[in-house]
Design a protein around this nucleic acid. Sequence first.
DNA 1: TTGTGTTTTATTGCCTCC
DNA 2: GGAGGCAATAAAACACAA
Length: 295
Amino acid sequence: MDPGRNMISSAVPFRAAGEGGAQVFLFGGGGGFLQGAPVVGAAGAADGWRRKRPFQLTAHEELQLQLELGDDELAGFDYELHGGPQERTKRRLTAEQVRELELSFEEEKRKLEPERKSELARRLGIAPRQVAVWFQNRRARWKAKQLEQDFDRLRAAHDELLAGRDALLADNDRLRSQVITLTDKLQAKESSVPASALQAAAYAPFEQDQLCTETATTGGAAPAAGYTGGAGDSPESYLAGARSPPSSSEDDCGGGDGDGGAFFLPDPDALLAAAAEEDGAQLSNWAWLWNEQQY
DNA sequence: TTGTGTTTTATTGCCTCC
DNA sequence: GGAGGCAATAAAACACAA
């Protein structure tokens, strides 16, 4: 930053707090009482002392103030005239000043127009620079709070997603064990029943309504065969469809085992076997994808 | 009273905009 | 190039427990 900016804005005016928290603000611009006083920045550095707090008075400024106002006026100020060249301490704004600033902050949507800044400074008896600084810091606090709230919202959403994911995984496990059980049963029957009868029995539930019929027919001997590899018929979309629970109008589709409606789940091992038989790269990919998405 | 953590006020340096 | 905003930081003021 250019040193001159802060130097001018903060060194020219200064304030002195009166009893009971009242503050008297003194503007020294335009040949005022601080003219010629050592100021912060270049001038301050030039005389070998760089003030840390420009709102604080040097001994020189102190003397000028004394000459300007006289001892009587200064007497009531919370300001040590006999403490030597010691720096004044930073003072907090009064509750009333803060209240006004807060109101302005809300009204102006955190923006501070130059005219408003001057008017506020005049009304509150503080430097325009102080008003600007207060708004700056207030915006920083507001932003930090916003970030905190955003973080809380995101964390809540994240936790909710995790809970949903856990529920889905549990459901997946349950359905997968169902597939295994049914596969075992089919294999047990395979030894005593002709293959054609077995297949008919296995796919019979899917012919109960339109959706099931479509699934069975496009699936052919096995759902894997229904995948053509074309656009819009990707393994992902096919899997997504296969894994979606039936809608309320399709509740009677499937096994009817009383658990809310079963839907078709291709057996991964069967898919891999089919892939090997047909030497289909896409089919193999689909089977692999299926296995991946199970977990 | 004192040590420590938090909040508030102010500065500094960089960046953007007009 | 000046004005103003912002992030980072310093330091005073404040709160509070031990």
